[in-house]
């Protein structure tokens, strides 16, 4: 860790945060927020959190920005002025923010020293994870082994949360009736104007490589940064790229709403199913070492490694389906029936 780099990135982050709040155009705010996320990604890498950086690059700088742009496309870029009570709301916000800041500044004295290797957070269970991950699971990337094995329950319910978010977006936005109001120019096309051949051609050629890379990220998460979440988001992003460069009919034809919801279900069920399989074989829920009984030529340690790969695949499928589903619902305002 290099403190000069740390300082300059953090300063840029604060500038971006101020700019994205202050700017008077929502599209600009979305783009500046993308830059903010990208700087965050640099910050994580600089602090040694490569898996977090990977996630931030694909989720924060990638999909979040696209979602903001899709929402702005469906609504308006305009930021109006408050007609009355403007001073009051600003004062209330400022007082609340300053009070929170004051409390945190007072508490800051008791925080553990920054970059100190002997803080309480680094002394309790974390040394066990660092020293035993190779011995227990044969997975050198300890973030993957903690995520998928030692704390597998957490991750299972995080996946369930993503799935619930996808369901919530469908419940809020989806409209099946044809004669619904909200007159949109064309619910499918985000790129205004004429179709651009160069962009379409390049996007179409890129998609297989993006998907191959996503599969690599999922499969190689044991040995390098990456895993189910990142790979799933990249897979979803490849579909979103097609949807942006063509229109959303292009991916609805390939991945219908029914399939999308089904794949989201299947992903979560793969995760829970592997857990139940362990239970059926006589071990605890999500204790993959028992899988050596059913997997050929596997000892207990490698069984844990393979079990992690199984649940990462489930996570990737669920995340991909949900990301695509959220994007299509937002960009078309919930109106994307095939027969339109």
């Amino acid at each position: 860790m290099i403190w000069q780099l740390d300082l300059s990135i953090l300063t840029l982050i604060v500038i971006c945060a101020f700019a994205t709040i202050m700017v008077k155009d929502l599209l600009s705010a979305a783009i500046i927020f993308g830059a903010y996320s990208f700087l965050m990604c640099l910050l994580w890498t600089e602090m040694g959190a490569v898996d977090v950086a990977f996630t931030e690059a694909s989720v924060g700088a990638g999909v979040s920005t696209v979602l903001f742009i899709a929402a702005v496309h469906q609504t308006t870029r305009r930021v109006g002025f408050r007609k009355s009570g403007r001073g009051l709301s600003k004062a209330v916000g400022l007082v609340a923010a300053l009070l929170t800041g004051l409390v945190l500044v007072i508490a800051e004295k008791d925080f553990p020293g920054f970059a100190n290797p002997f803080t309480p957070a680094s002394l309790h269970v974390s040394p066990y994870y660092i020293t035993q991950t190779l011995h227990d699971t044969n997975v050198p990337n300890m973030v993957t082994s903690v995520l998928a094995d030692y704390r597998g329950f957490d991750t299972m319910f995080e996946t369930a949360v993503i799935f619930t978010a996808g369901l919530a977006v469908i419940a809020i936005l989806r409209r099946y009736k044809k004669d619904d109001r909200c007159d949109l120019p064309d619910p499918h096309v985000i790129s205004a104007g004429y179709p651009d051949t160069i962009i379409r051609f390049v996007a179409r050629q890129l998609v297989p490589f993006i998907q191959l890379f996503a599969l690599y990220v999922v499969a190689h998460g044991h040995h390098s940064p990456g895993g189910g979440f990142q790979g799933g988001v990249i897979l979803g992003a490849s579909f979103i790229l097609l949807a942006i460069s063509y229109d959303s009919r292009m991916i609805i034809g390939r991945m219908s709403e029914k399939w999308n919801i089904l794949l989201g279900n299947i992903g979560v069920l793969i995760y829970a199913g592997i857990g139940f399989l362990c239970l059926l074989l006589g071990a605890n829920f999500l204790d993959y070492s028992i899988l050596s009984k059913v997997l050929p030529a596997t000892d207990k340690i490698m069984a844990r490694s393979h079990g992690m790969l199984g649940i990462e695949t489930g996570v990737a499928i669920a995340v991909m389906a949900i990301v695509v589903s959220i994007y299509i619902n937002i960009v078309s305002c919930g109106k994307y029936d095939k027969d339109e």
Binding site: M47, T55, E56, V59, G60, M142, T164, V323, I326
Partner: peptide, 29 residues
Amino acid sequence: YANPLPHVLMLTAIVVSVGTLGVALAICL
């Protein structure tokens, strides 16, 4: 080695944040 535990917790938090962002934007729409 850096402490992996906060990384794991925050990795999932980032993915959940895209879920909350999707729901929030859906409510806005």
